[in-house]
Amino acid sequence: MNSGSKLTRFFKRFYLALILIFLYIPIIVLIIQSFNAGKSRAKWEGFSLHWYGELFRSASIMNSLEVTLLVAVLAMIVSTVLGTLAAIGIYSMKKRPQSLMMTLTNLPNTMPDIVTGISLMLLFIFTRVDRGFWTMLLAHITFDTPYVILSVMPKLKQMNKHTYEAALDLGATPSYALWHVLIPECKQGIITGAMLAFTLSLDDFTISYFTTSPLVQNLSTLIYSAARRGIEPTLNALSALMFVALLALLLVVNKRTSEN
């Protein structure tokens, strides 16, 4: 191997390292800061779990953590059920309506969150629904469902097209065939979709911001309004915890997708 290709290789790695450094340095700084005993961001005053303690004592943060988790879990459950049934429905459609429905499913994913957020806000204002917990939940179900459909659909398409008929042929009623054949067949896709929905719901800011009231806040909207008053070090601790939790979830999701 000549020196030229060695040099190329070096630059390739250097470039990659730069990208990763710029991506992760802020997060690493944030995590380090969360263990800083002092309040100053400029000075390291010793290692401490003080801000983690403060975090769990803060009523507003704990309250919004509860809202975030509750919304994420409920949105995950509802969108998984809706998305799975929708995928099965779309799968059994004829070719043309099926491709139309899949385009409609892909559309919200390509649309900027701000458009989804504002249009949902307008919808709630137009229908005179007071914004709060339930409107935020509805919004999250809305943007989660297409992702579930998109995770379940490939599993259905991989199946032999006569699998459902084979179940009926052996004496299964349509509902038995649904529960004992179709759903087990695409179980992997359903679980991946559910985890994706949970993750997306957990870290959403834009859509939540437009669809809730200042009285009901999830973590991201709380951090946003707190940041305007200046960052409390408790938020460093909170962000560090959220980062770790989401990272863990994403790793699991990625592992599952690569296994399939």
């Binding site: 032999n160 097209k161 006569h162 699998t163 008929e165 084979a166 179940a167 042929d169 052996l170 054949v181 087990p184 067949e185 179980k187």
Partner: peptide, 14 residues
């Protein structure tokens, strides 16, 4: 009271 053997079998992989 009929049963079918489908093209490409359509067995249940799970």
């Amino acid at each position: 009271r009929v049963n079918t053997v489908f093209q490409k079998y359509a067995l249940f992989p799970h």
